[in-house]
Amino acid sequence: MRTQRDRALLEMMWEGGLRPGEVLGLRLGDISYGRRRIVVRNRTDHPAGVRQKSRRDRTVDLLEGRALPAVSDYVLHERPPDAETGYVFLVGGRGQRRHEPLSYDGLVRMFARAAGRAGVRDAWLTPHALRHTHATRMFEGGMRDLTLMTRLGHASPDSTTSPGSKTGCASKNSSSPMLPNVAGRVRSNDTDAHSQPPHRPERTAR
């Protein structure tokens, strides 16, 4: 079932280019709605063992106007208000694990369901593909290599762009397999469908 939490997760990875561990490691205090940015922090205390790859904290601007409203909707209307943890994304439902921070396995299962709804079934398509999609969008939009490297939290420019290679996060070759347009379609299909109001049949006059 599509939820506000799932929509917020997809939008955050799409717009911010976050690694799965980074989006799962976000805490409420890391989000600045007024400045339209988040702070990605290196943490080692996630209850589900989630880790951030980069050891350095960084700030990521979110200026496209989709991720932060989606997160705000989730926090205000769906996230349990009595949750004791400060982590943003929690296990939903009514089970025993409700209120616990979402794990990487939970994120993978959610993304697989979203891919299924989009009619996409590729073994390589994982939540991390949204990060590659983001990097490619930023690069093709004119963002400079060093700026993109800082935004993604890379230690080397070689990790950011790699012409015609599978190793670069942003591909300079539009035919590269690491240009996952399919990942964007998964996110677009899922979030756009979620944001559409339900169809209500018109009443006929009697």
Rank of each mutant, 00 (worst) to 15 (best):
M1S: 12
D6R: 12
R7D: 06
A8T: 13
L9A: 05
L9H: 02
L10A: 15
E15L: 05
L18G: 00
R19L: 01
P20L: 04
G21W: 00
E22A: 14
E22L: 11
V23S: 14
L24Q: 01
L24W: 01
G25V: 08
R27C: 09
G29K: 14
D30R: 06
R36Y: 00
R37D: 12
R37Y: 00
R37L: 03
I38V: 12
R43Y: 00
H46Q: 05
A48W: 09
V50Q: 02
R51G: 03
R56W: 03
R58L: 04
T59L: 08
T59S: 03
L63M: 01
A67E: 01
A67W: 02
P69G: 07
P69S: 05
A70T: 07
V71I: 14
S72A: 11
S72Q: 12
D73A: 07
Y74V: 13
E78K: 15
E84V: 13
E84C: 04
G86N: 12
V88D: 00
V88S: 08
V88P: 05
V91R: 04
G92V: 10
G92E: 11
G92Q: 11
G92T: 15
G93A: 15
R94E: 04
G95T: 03
G95C: 03
R97I: 11
R97Q: 15
R98L: 06
H99G: 02
E100I: 03
E100R: 01
P101D: 06
S103W: 05
S103G: 12
S103L: 06
Y104N: 07
D105F: 01
G106Q: 08
L107I: 10
V108F: 06
V108Y: 05
V108R: 03
F111L: 10
R113V: 06
G116M: 03
G116Q: 14
R117T: 00
A118D: 09
W124P: 01
W124M: 02
P127Y: 12
P127E: 01
R131Y: 14
R131T: 13
H132Y: 07
H134A: 15
A135N: 08
T136G: 03
R137A: 13
M138A: 13
M138H: 01
F139T: 07
G142E: 13
G142H: 11
D145Q: 14
D145R: 10
T147H: 12
T147V: 10
T147F: 06
R151S: 14
R151H: 10
L152D: 15
G153A: 14
A155D: 06
D158S: 15
T160D: 08
S162G: 12
G164E: 03
S165F: 05
K166C: 08
K166Y: 02
T167I: 03
T167M: 04
T167S: 15
G168M: 10
C169M: 10
C169G: 12
A170I: 05
A170P: 07
S171H: 04
N173F: 13
S175I: 09
S176I: 09
M178N: 11
P180Y: 07
P180E: 07
N181I: 03
V182Q: 06
G184D: 05
G184W: 02
R187P: 00
R187I: 02
D190E: 13
D192E: 14
Q196S: 13
P197Y: 08
P197M: 10
P197F: 02
P201K: 15
E202R: 13
R203M: 11
R203A: 05
T204L: 07
T204Q: 07
T204S: 07
A205V: 06
